[in-house]
Amino acid sequence: MSEQVPAPTEVAAEVEAAAARLRGTGPGGGSAPPAARDMYLRLESVGKTFGSVVALDGVSMDVNHGRVTCVLGDNGAGKSTLIKILSGVHQNDSGTLYVAGQPTVFGSPKDARDVGIATVFQDLATIPLMSVWRNFVLGREPVKGWGPFRRLDIAAGQEIARRELGMFGIDLRDPDQPIGTLSGGERQAVAIARAVYFGAEVVILDEPTSALGVKQSGKVLKFVRDARDRGIGVVLITHNPHHAYMVGDEFVLLKRGRMTNRWLKEEVALDELVAAMAGGAELEDLAHELGA
């Protein structure tokens, strides 16, 4: 994929400046562990409590460009709390979050967005009645003209949507069609492609496959791989170890708010991942599903 994203240097510079501002130091300052420098985003035993409830405890993970980090866990495992910490909605109250090697606290979702962390929520990503291209550029519409004649650059918007989705292998029938006419997988792709186009360094995907059928899930996993190949760091939140194993480079398993396992891809086999995730009685069912 040699097709260039417009103004990548501007976006990178902006992200760099925002990161520097957040860490409160100029470039080069600070004394983080050397390994943290190599990762764009690192969590070290991060925890969060709400009153007496321990929602998250001792979670460590690395996220980097061109890498997929999977967070696995059943309902109530603390996945949503983790997303909210990563996207700046909540602040961790133990452990440390590093951005580009520097300890960082996101004060708000805007802080996270400013350092290039984009979150794609499953149902809250697109507006069904609006056309694909209007959805794609929403909030950052290209404009032309000036003063009272400043207007949407419709041709540019349609071209951006068509080109960017094309890079994810989606051949857009008509950029003007309502996005509600796209399949669930394609809608996810629009949200991912949009985040990538607007300069995301890290894309957090919240259960992107949970509402989809087998074929559609496969498509979404392909989009994840494409994003990774384009140098994006991906955090894939899922409860499906099969999906995670297909694309993941690192796996973090959460249970009841605690991190129970952490593997790199080469350290773990699929059976192991499934077993750790499900355990005991459910294993047989899942093995059956796996065999199919």
């Binding site: 979150t119 697109t126 507006i127 609006m130 209007r134 929403l138 519409e141 949407l152």
Partner: peptide, 15 residues
């Protein structure tokens, strides 16, 4: 574009 968006889905628009 924003008028359509906030009416279509205010949460998605905010995001």
């Amino acid at each position: 574009n924003w008028i359509y968006a906030v009416g279509g889905d205010a949460n998605a628009a905010r995001n």
